[in-house]
Simulated scan of single mutants.
Amino acid sequence: MTDPIAPQILIVDDARDIREPLGQYLRKQGFRTALAANAAEARVIVAKAAIHLVVLDIMMPGEDGLSLCRWLVAQGGPPVLLLTAMADETDRIVGLELGADDYLVKPFNPRELLARVRAILRRAPPEIAPPPSGRRTFAGWTHDPDGMKLSGEGGSVDLTSAENRLLGIFLDQPRTVLSRATLLDLTAGREAKVYDRAIDNQISRLRRKIETDAKDPRILVTEWGGGYRLAADVESAR
């Protein structure tokens, strides 16, 4: 019988002959599993269940795996292991740039997939720390972490949970250079990889919301060879 507190793996693949046998194999290895035939089913499961890792096929009818991967990363969701076809090198690269943690080429050996799943889970923390409470101001903005909003002269801006958490980290350490590895560890607890672009994607989204010109950032600046820095003073908001 599977341990009720064992990590739960969501397998998203439109091919039933891959999805179901893989689910059975992972259950025999001590994991709990959930199965989805498409992105719509996967979204429902992620919203309702505690998912620790998503094994995600890229090529699916309707919404493809890259789109779902983008959504999972934007929501600060669980780690993603992509399944790709042999010829889809471009899709693999795009998936990693979107923030996927690893990929495996079809056809694959289930033992290799198991090893990659275990490696990803070892890098993930038991749980992600919530963003800090307390409203703070910086560069003309007021950050409300509980409401996941920014407000300024131009009005208010909604933040995703991942953006909210990332901004809170920068506000905790203003004018300090934070490397990608540090940011990955603080936001999701994942081991940094040279191809992991999740932080870069989140920084780009934050810049579009807080910068006058996201292509010439003055608030959230890049330190070449180092990482990123919040170039503003931070104060508690009344």
Score class of each variant (00 low, 15 high):
233 D>T: 15
157 V>P: 00
83 L>G: 07
80 V>R: 11
176 T>C: 05
196 D>E: 02
192 A>G: 14
74 A>P: 03
153 E>I: 09
38 N>T: 04
44 V>H: 14
141 W>P: 00
59 M>W: 06
113 L>Y: 02
218 R>W: 02
29 Q>M: 15
177 V>I: 15
90 T>C: 01
47 A>H: 08
196 D>S: 03
186 L>R: 15
136 R>N: 12
20 E>T: 15
41 E>N: 04
147 G>M: 10
55 V>K: 07
82 L>Q: 02
19 R>C: 13
166 L>S: 06
207 R>Q: 04
133 S>Y: 04
76 G>C: 06
115 A>I: 11
22 L>C: 10
130 P>C: 07
52 H>Q: 10
143 H>I: 09
73 V>Q: 10
193 K>R: 13
227 G>N: 09
73 V>W: 02
8 Q>C: 15
176 T>V: 14
4 P>T: 01
150 L>C: 11
217 P>H: 07
195 Y>Q: 08
145 P>I: 12
106 K>V: 12
198 A>E: 11
46 V>R: 14
48 K>P: 00
81 L>P: 06
127 E>F: 13
19 R>W: 10
205 R>N: 01
52 H>L: 01
216 D>T: 15
28 K>S: 10
23 G>D: 03
214 A>M: 02
205 R>T: 07
160 T>K: 09
157 V>N: 04
72 L>D: 08
